[in-house]
Computed example of a mutant assay.
Amino acid sequence: MLRTIDEVMSTPVRTISPDTSLREAAEVMRDSDVGDVVVTQDNRIMGILTDRDIVVRCVAEGGDPAQHTAEEVCSSELATVPPQSDIRDAVHVMRTSAVRRLPVVDGDRVVGVVSMGDLARAVDEDSALADVSAADPNR
């Protein structure tokens, strides 16, 4: 039986405001052992910011993460899925949108994030991606 996204998504969602500095966002990611945060304003999702966004769109360009904000580098054109979606739907959205993480939204409210690793574990717990995703983060 196919599982639904609300069974495999990661919660709680780490959120930041658009004016949060990239340095502060990176600290939230570090302290929460996550690779992304959702950018929200007035409880509405505005974007998703990943550790890779900070590196590629700020640091690699010579920017100072303390001087740039989440709003400046987050991905704002979002693909999302509702919590009732089945795993196949999420895989399809990831493929067609070429993304590794999907915010899970219930109406306007973000309730979780589902990653490729979450889906890999749900589909095949013995896959290499599932093993890597389940491993403790590097310190």
Rank of each mutant, 00 (worst) to 15 (best):
residue 6 D to Y: 12
residue 68 H to W: 08
residue 33 D to L: 13
residue 86 D to K: 10
residue 15 T to H: 04
residue 29 M to Q: 03
residue 40 T to E: 08
residue 117 G to H: 03
residue 54 I to G: 00
residue 65 P to M: 02
residue 6 D to K: 10
residue 13 V to A: 09
residue 22 L to C: 10
residue 8 V to Y: 02
residue 5 I to M: 05
residue 83 P to S: 09
residue 3 R to L: 14
residue 87 I to D: 02
residue 124 D to Q: 09
residue 48 I to K: 01
residue 98 A to T: 10
residue 41 Q to C: 12
residue 101 R to N: 04
residue 10 S to R: 06
residue 83 P to C: 11
residue 24 E to M: 12
residue 11 T to A: 14
residue 66 A to W: 07
residue 19 D to G: 08
residue 89 D to A: 15
residue 28 V to M: 03
residue 68 H to C: 03
residue 131 D to C: 12
residue 79 A to M: 13
residue 133 S to D: 13
residue 50 T to E: 01
residue 96 T to R: 11
residue 135 A to H: 07
residue 49 L to S: 02
residue 45 I to E: 06
residue 132 V to C: 09
residue 63 G to R: 08
residue 139 R to W: 12
residue 139 R to P: 10
residue 73 V to P: 00
residue 110 V to E: 02
residue 63 G to W: 02
residue 8 V to N: 03
residue 32 S to Y: 07
residue 44 R to I: 05
residue 86 D to H: 14
residue 86 D to V: 11
residue 24 E to A: 12
residue 58 C to M: 05
residue 17 S to D: 12
residue 111 V to T: 10
residue 112 G to C: 10
residue 92 H to S: 15
residue 62 G to Q: 08
residue 13 V to C: 04
residue 137 P to D: 12
residue 87 I to C: 11
residue 90 A to G: 06
residue 112 G to E: 04
residue 17 S to Y: 07
residue 127 S to G: 09
residue 122 A to H: 03
residue 26 A to K: 00
residue 24 E to K: 10
residue 93 V to L: 07
residue 130 A to V: 11
residue 41 Q to M: 13
residue 35 G to V: 05
residue 16 I to W: 00
residue 132 V to R: 14
residue 85 S to A: 15
residue 120 A to E: 02
residue 21 S to K: 10
residue 61 E to P: 01
residue 16 I to K: 00
residue 112 G to S: 10
residue 68 H to Q: 09
residue 73 V to I: 14
residue 110 V to G: 03
residue 24 E to H: 09
residue 126 D to W: 11
residue 124 D to F: 10
residue 124 D to S: 12
residue 104 V to Q: 03
residue 7 E to D: 12
residue 65 P to L: 02
residue 48 I to L: 07
residue 19 D to S: 13
residue 122 A to L: 07
residue 132 V to P: 03
residue 69 T to M: 05
residue 72 E to F: 03
residue 83 P to V: 09
residue 64 D to S: 08
residue 86 D to P: 09
residue 58 C to D: 00
residue 56 V to L: 11
residue 40 T to D: 04
residue 15 T to Q: 08
residue 99 V to Q: 03
residue 41 Q to W: 08
